[in-house]
Design a protein around this nucleic acid. Sequence first.
DNA 1: AACGGTACCGCAAACGATTGCGGAAACGTT
DNA 2: AACGTTTCCGCAATCGTTTGCGGTACCGTT
Lengths: 334, 334
Amino acid sequence: MKRATIKDIASQLGVSPSTVSRALNDHPDISDKVKEEVRQVAQALNYHVNLTAVNLRNNRSGLIALIIPEITMFFFPSLIKGIEDVVSANGYQLLVLQSQNALAGEVANLRVCADLSIDGILISLSAQTKDLDHLQELEAAAVPIVLFDKSIEQTQFDQVMIDDEEAAYQCVSYLIKAGATKICAVLGDQQLQMSQLRHQGFQRAMVEANLLSNGPNSTYIIHAKSQDQCTSLVIDWLGNYEVDAFFCMSDELSAGVYAAINTTTGDNKHKPKVIGISDGHLPSILSPNLDHYRHSGYELGHLAAERLILRLKAGRKQTIAPETLILEGQLVVG
Amino acid sequence: MKRATIKDIASQLGVSPSTVSRALNDHPDISDKVKEEVRQVAQALNYHVNLTAVNLRNNRSGLIALIIPEITMFFFPSLIKGIEDVVSANGYQLLVLQSQNALAGEVANLRVCADLSIDGILISLSAQTKDLDHLQELEAAAVPIVLFDKSIEQTQFDQVMIDDEEAAYQCVSYLIKAGATKICAVLGDQQLQMSQLRHQGFQRAMVEANLLSNGPNSTYIIHAKSQDQCTSLVIDWLGNYEVDAFFCMSDELSAGVYAAINTTTGDNKHKPKVIGISDGHLPSILSPNLDHYRHSGYELGHLAAERLILRLKAGRKQTIAPETLILEGQLVVG
DNA sequence: AACGGTACCGCAAACGATTGCGGAAACGTT
DNA sequence: AACGTTTCCGCAATCGTTTGCGGTACCGTT
């Protein structure tokens, strides 16, 4: 059975398609009698508007694209949920695209967005992305764009972030207060601005405590791009160096460090403390529970999506200045 | 700057839109000279085909919908990745919809699919879903549908599953071989067919080992709908009963049980063994590593998506009989 | 009876792309 | 020179919906 169209209803009732369209949209020009009849027949034929046609006419798609480096079990599920809730509550649908953490992938994703007449874009940048040239085409087409989580230095677009430097600072300060002096920072891809900022927070806390009197010590900095790589790096590292505590900038790395510690140190030996930055899901799974600076992935997604919806509702009539929204977090320890 | 259309190219070159369209699609009726000119201008104007228009004409959307109960950090990320890889490799885009584990949500999601002229559907059923009436409209519209992971007894559609009964059986058999006699099964939502099947596998192993000589013992069956609920239930339970081992039917529950055990039993007390069914990500994070029956979420997604693509490529010319594909898994222990 | 107003509905164009059909050149063949 | 082929391109319809503009009744008023 083919889908019923507006014409089917029209011919069945002996009226014009225009009338049917207006009736279904409750246009005042149409009498209540006709409206009722149209609704009846529509129901009977199981009519549903063809969104593709509507989209063509209105030059919109009802779709919002989410572009992320890669879906992992950490952080992204709650983030996606936060986004999805807002998006679908506002009548949009969510298209999930992965850049594979590569600039080329990001460009390809944006190409798809343009081709599909995507109405709005939420994007977390890949580690390779150093500028926003590839966003300009969409920007020129007046497609609202909100950056979140992983970004670069910029003021052209809205962005929703956490205070990376401060989060790291708080984590490391806590470790120091707890008595740690030999602290190793486990960071992500060196190219990521996020890694650099969290590194800076680490440094600030260390300097403040006079623990880097000989200048930065690269021995106590580990960069890893994946959980597995992190585990093996840390296992090696633990064979060569002494450490009181680890600061891990992400869930992946916290998990990697835990695994390394579990395979390296026996049950009775003294284990190094670990603190991380997390949305709180992983910490409750790990044993002992991971101390962490918590920022909700759900809220981050929620906030970013709401900002996008705000722009979509405003349309191109109002111009809203790009803003950087900082999501608060807090230390969860003990 | 508005998007360039085919007409813009046409008027710039003084040819008709038809010619431009054919030139861009490399139609043999168009001379090489014109083709080249069209391509030049298209490039210059940064022309890109409007997929909405194409979709309207072809009555397709290039979209594949993934409908799942809810995105959690367990299992779904790898699943989505497996699906996304196949889908995008075949020129489709993935729409992620969540049913909130409710039938009403599922119906709403399918409504969206119909309205958007979705080309194919991958669906994992909600716990509430007892029949497939709501799939019939899409089925009638010749939209390929593949069920996966969570399904019900049916033969109308393709489905990609693991052998739930056998997986549970193997887990519990292993526990028994390892010396356990008092084994508690931690299962998910009682309404889920998956829960029932895995329960059956549990029973089979127990009966086979003569551990249920007094008939089924409901004391050693726990049903939980979330990780947190599981944790609190198991904490209570551990206060009242003795147990050698837990069999957890999912990652959520394994994590919940681990948390319960960690809060209940001290370091030196004897801890119950735990085995689960998992894609292997969580087990490597938990300490001690979780024994489990492993089935790859990535492969499951991959397989389901490929089955869908197969049907999409076949079109409605060939009729392919619905099939149930079983993904193999294996015990990972020790 | 003539006129202004309102209520209600249809015509046709538009969104952007595709395609069957037809037609005008240009070519080759006898 | 007449005819058949090929080459190449345009016309117009189509997908399903929306909407500006206009038009016809019918109403009440003077």
